[in-house]
Simulated assay, not measured.
Amino acid sequence: MLRHEFQPGRLIAGTALVAAAVVYAGDAGGAWETPWFVVIPLVVGGLCLAGGVGAVTGLVRRRRGRPVSEGGDTGDRARTTGG
């Protein structure tokens, strides 16, 4: 049972930021030398990709229609019964 909706845009954003953290951690640990400007395209590209994926996901969900949550009332019954 899912407790929340899967959001692939947030997954991509998190992956890009973790990758940036790994690059800086490797530099801090002495595993390799990383110029300061290398992480900027990684973070910006990851956030732009995440935004695009999030927008496409929103369009797909809007087009397919959202399922009614358990126990939730959409208000349709109140309008159709007249009262």
Rank of each mutant, 00 (worst) to 15 (best):
L49Y: 03
A25V: 09
L2M: 11
A20G: 03
P67K: 14
I12M: 05
P35R: 11
A31I: 15
Q7T: 06
G83L: 06
V56N: 02
T80Y: 03
Y24G: 00
F37Q: 14
G30V: 14
G51T: 07
V22P: 00
L49I: 08
R3W: 11
A25N: 01
A78L: 09
A55L: 15
G46K: 05
G14K: 07
G71R: 12
P35I: 08
L2N: 14
S69C: 14
L2E: 14
A13Y: 08
G29C: 12
G82K: 02
V68P: 07
L49P: 04
T57S: 12
D73N: 15
A28L: 13
A50R: 08
T15G: 14
G14V: 06
R79N: 00
A13G: 08
A78P: 01
P8M: 06
A19G: 08
G82E: 06
G9I: 03
G51L: 10
G45L: 02
G9P: 05
G14F: 13
V56T: 10
R79L: 09
R63W: 10
Q7V: 10
R64V: 09
L42R: 06
A25D: 01
A20D: 02
A19N: 04
V44M: 00
D27S: 12
V23H: 03
E5M: 06
R62Y: 12
L49Q: 01
G45F: 00
W36G: 10
A31Q: 10
G83P: 03
G75F: 07
L11V: 11
G82N: 07
G51S: 11
A19I: 13
L11S: 02
M1Y: 11
G65H: 04
Y24A: 06
T57L: 06
V23L: 07
E5A: 11
G71N: 08
T81I: 02
P8Q: 02
G52L: 14
I12V: 11
L49N: 05
D73L: 14
Q7F: 13
G29L: 15
P35Y: 00
R62W: 13
G71P: 09
T80G: 02
V22Y: 03
T74Q: 10
G83W: 01
G82C: 01
R79G: 01
P41G: 05
R3L: 13
V56M: 10
V38C: 08
R62M: 13
V43K: 04
G9D: 08
G9H: 02
L17Y: 09
G65A: 00
T74D: 15
R64Q: 11
G75L: 15
L42P: 04
A25T: 12
P67S: 13
V22A: 10
T34W: 13
R10E: 13
G46Q: 04
A25G: 09
G46E: 01
L2S: 12
W32Q: 03
T81D: 00
V56Q: 01
L11K: 00
T34M: 14
G71L: 07
G45D: 01
W32T: 12
T34Y: 05
P41H: 07
H4R: 13
V60F: 07
T57E: 12
E5V: 10
G26A: 04
